[in-house]
């Protein structure tokens, strides 16, 4: 697996996880397997922000559900602090890992007050009495930058940015270590998005949180993540430190994703993409490398055989024709990738 000299402290680890759903096509159609995750391995190190990028249908959301214990993997293992997820108490897991969802309009129960919403985790876990729960709500509201008088209001009275702050408060009220952020800003306006991103960055620094940051917005990922994993059709095709990836992606798919990022620079035009074919249907995945029908570099071998993921000092790459130097290049010691940012 990973380079042994690297001192790692994975808080969360996926080992060869696969997830298959059966999908019925049509009224009387036969059920067919849809493999959302294929033999996927991933580590989340203490204190880092792992950006997870990929297009819709690549399995990002399924991965998030498995990490939250909302879905069970079909095969493979999920380790939390080295112990398999299945064996752990569901409540104990909930205390360590909490989600922040995409849509602040759908993630808050419209029939409950803000105080009820935020204190739900405390009540479910029986932490403290009513008074101390109220105090905890007040405290966490302050942390996420909301005045305590919003406690008795309802979500419908708030703006999108405020609701997302409430969602963050709910996720943090039990002081988890790991937060799964599933597109936390993509439903928000630009000016509100920056507030939420700043808040997430501050919270990570002040509370020592570890984030899995799922997003399709690569500019945001580049800004916040310390390491990035690129997913394509249920597999990780490249994994690297953020700077290294944005300086030069090795996988042609990562490269295409980076090309498609529209930075607000008027001197650059609209990029020309040469991803001819559409995103493949996960029910009928292409042979060999799943990306080969869209890849400019694809050869016969790519269609025949799937490139095995190669783990090196730079991260992970699964491609027969990676960009840049050979994947086995040795790296000077002083340029060794930063480990998780110091917390």
């Amino acid at each position: 697996m990973r380079n042994e000299t690297k001192a790692t402290n994975p808080v969360l680890e996926l080992k060869n996880v696969s997830k298959t759903y059966s999908v019925k096509q049509g009224l009387l159609g036969k059920s067919r397997p849809l493999t959302a995750l294929r033999d996927l391995s991933l580590r989340l190190e203490q204190g880092e922000v792992l950006g997870l990028v990929g297009e819709s249908g690549c399995g990002k959301s399924t991965l998030a559900k498995i990490l939250l214990g909302l879905e069970a993997p079909t095969s493979g293992e999920v380790l939390v602090d080295g112990a398999p997820l299945g064996s752990q108490d569901r409540l104990a897991l909930a205390r360590r890992i909490q989600p922040i969802f995409q849509d602040p309009y759908s993630s808050l129960n419209p029939r409950k007050t803000i105080a009820d919403i935020i204190s739900l985790p405390l009540r479910v876990h029986g932490i403290g009495d009513a008074a101390s729960q109220q105090a905890a709500v007040r405290e966490i509201l302050d942390v996420v930058g909301l005045p305590s008088r919003v406690m008795h209001t309802y979500p419908s009275q708030m703006s999108g940015g405020q609701r997302q702050r409430v969602a963050i408060a709910r996720a943090l009220v039990m002081k988890p270590d790991i937060v799964i952020c599933d597109e936390p800003t993509s439903a928000l306006d630009v000016s509100v998005q920056s507030q939420i991103l700043n808040l997430l960055a501050d919270l990570r620094r002040d509370l020592g949180l570890t984030y899995l940051f799922i997003s399709h917005n690569l500019a945001v990922v580049e800004h916040l993540a310390t390491r990035v994993a690129v997913m394509y059709l249920g597999r990780i095709v490249e994994e690297a430190e953020t700077e290294a990836l944005f300086d030069g992606a090795r996988h042609p798919y990562s490269e295409a994703l980076l090309t498609s990022v529209l930075t607000p620079d008027p001197s650059l035009g609209v990029p020309r993409m040469n991803l001819g074919a559409a995103y493949p249907n996960p029910i009928d995945p292409p042979s060999g490398c799943a990306f080969h029908p869209r890849c400019a570099k694809a050869t016969e071998a790519c269609a025949r055989q799937r490139p095995a993921p190669v783990v090196d000092e730079d991260g992970l790459i699964a491609c027969f024709h990676p960009n840049g130097m050979a994947p086995t290049r040795s790296r000077p010691a002083e340029a060794a990738p930063r480990l998780s940012a110091s917390v």
């Binding site: 297009e55 917005n217 090309t259 498609s260 529209l262 609209v270 993409m273 991803l275």
Partner: peptide
């Protein structure tokens, strides 16, 4: 998706 977005914008442009 972002890759599709770039293609569609290019096309419109």
């Amino acid at each position: 998706d972002v890759t599709i977005q770039a293609q569609i914008l290019r096309l419109l442009y």
